[in-house]
């Protein structure tokens, strides 16, 4: 009985010191590991200014806003409503012979606590309705019958692209985004 008490006492003394030893060996000064939102994480953004093939200019910038918060382990890393900027990559008005308008927009960055978080892969690329096939049909038909009428098709235009303010688009984070815990 006395031996059993002694063993128990030794165990009780040894256990905490063992834990302490394990802690000493593993850590040293405790360092917080930054949490990382990985590159290519999808984000949904809202275009805050109307764009269009007839009104947008290449290289022009426009305001955007994050629609859904970016979460990591259930915690908000980038809040919904964070604002940023997009850019017009390509804009072409509709043209003669039924050519439709064309528009390519890109998301550039979001402002997070004064830092620009770069975005990529916002594939909002739209073409207006093309009338080229209609024009070509008119042209072929009229060239075979009344050649002069073929020129009428040349004056037909395709439809413009319109992206209203408030349009949602998908983009991705361009690089890892680290946050101090």
């Amino acid at each position: 009985m006395t031996r059993a008490f002694l063993r128990l006492a030794v165990c009780c003394l040894a256990l905490p010191s063992g834990i302490l030893f394990a802690q000493d060996a593993s850590s040293g000064p405790v360092q917080a590991t930054p949490r990382v939102v990985p590159a290519l994480t999808p984000v949904r953004i809202e275009i805050l200014e109307a764009q269009g093939s007839a009104i947008s200019k290449p290289d022009a910038h426009f305001p955007i806003r994050l629609v859904d918060p970016v979460l990591l382990d259930g915690k908000t890393i980038i809040p919904a409503g964070a604002t940023g900027e997009g850019e017009v990559v390509h804009a072409k008005k509709s043209s003669m012979s039924g050519g439709p308008g064309e528009l390519i927009l890109a998301a550039r960055w979001l402002d997070v606590n004064g830092h620009q978080v770069r975005l990529r892969s916002m594939h909002l690329s739209e073409n207006g309705k093309s009338s080229i096939k209609d024009v070509n049909r008119i042209m072929i038909a009229s060239a075979a019958t009344v050649p002069v009428a073929a020129m009428l098709g040349w004056f037909m235009k395709g439809k413009e692209v319109v992206v209203p303010s408030g349009t949602y688009a998908e983009a991705k984070l361009a690089a890892d985004f680290s946050v101090e815990p």
Binding site: V89, H90, K92, E102, I104, R120, S121
Partner: peptide, 8 residues
């Protein structure tokens, strides 16, 4: 005619 793209 020209088209500009953003390659990723």
């Amino acid at each position: 005619d020209q088209v500009t793209l953003e390659l990723e």
